[in-house]
Design a protein around this nucleic acid. Sequence first.
DNA 1: CAAGGGCTTCAAGTATGCTTGAAGTCAATA
DNA 2: TATTGACTTCAAGCATACTTGAAGCCCTTG
Lengths: 147, 147
Amino acid sequence: MLEVNMADERLTIGELAKATGVATSALRYWEDLGLIPVPARVSGQRRYPASSVELVGMILLLRDVGFTLREVKALVTPRPEKSRAWQELQERKLAELDERIAQAQAARTAIAHGLACPHEDFYDCPNFTAILAARLAGASLQEAHSH
Amino acid sequence: MLEVNMADERLTIGELAKATGVATSALRYWEDLGLIPVPARVSGQRRYPASSVELVGMILLLRDVGFTLREVKALVTPRPEKSRAWQELQERKLAELDERIAQAQAARTAIAHGLACPHEDFYDCPNFTAILAARLAGASLQEAHSH
DNA sequence: CAAGGGCTTCAAGTATGCTTGAAGTCAATA
DNA sequence: TATTGACTTCAAGCATACTTGAAGCCCTTG
């Protein structure tokens, strides 16, 4: 049986997987993409520092709110001494997040309205259509992203 | 030149695409998946009612906040007379959205913290690690989703 | 009546984010 | 020493969400 080594703080990939709920295959994939730094090895096997748990947590957090893994990589990899470029990237991502939050709240309102509304005139409510109009107006933004 | 027909309120697929910012290929794909009802045809070409603009707006809204197209379909297709099942689906999705909003706000805090923090001890701040711990604790939830 | 623009279908290709399988290594345990 | 279990690499496969390309139809305009 493989007990968690109390004397050694380093985690095997299985332990990191268990601690974070992320499959080992995904952790190796993230390493290939450069999201996770290449860990030390003990007879060929990866050994992660305890801080990797927080790193994975950060990756999950960013991935879950809609950033691609390449965007996440730009946010979690050690930045070159607090460069201006990196700061600008973070500021852009922060703005994107604000927008995501606003959209999620709009969607929330839309669904809640769907629940509250009697039955048919779902799309006729001025409140509801205002939300949709706002999203459609933001379409240019959507295109700016995909570019 | 093809002017927008003022007398006819129905839109061609190109007009719907322009109004919503969604590519015609995507609109056809959504139709195949059943998100958009099969529209009327005029000499083989699709003609959409004006209300399709709002429908597409709703689809964008839900897709953008992380629902899969199959989930979106369940939310936007005409429900069988306000059935209990449909209402339960909406309530579940509402709860999911609340969670997404909470996560987005957590991510926002995390990034904002990254901006504010001096440089190295990024992952050492108690405030910051609390956010990550919350996300990692919610991992079981993530697994419940993918099932 | 020929050209052009926008539409049609259908099949195949692309990008992302993984999972799965085969074949093998390594260390601990029966 | 043989088996077990977790690990290794690498290639291929899969789901989602589309895009692209080929070949063709229909209507309008020069």
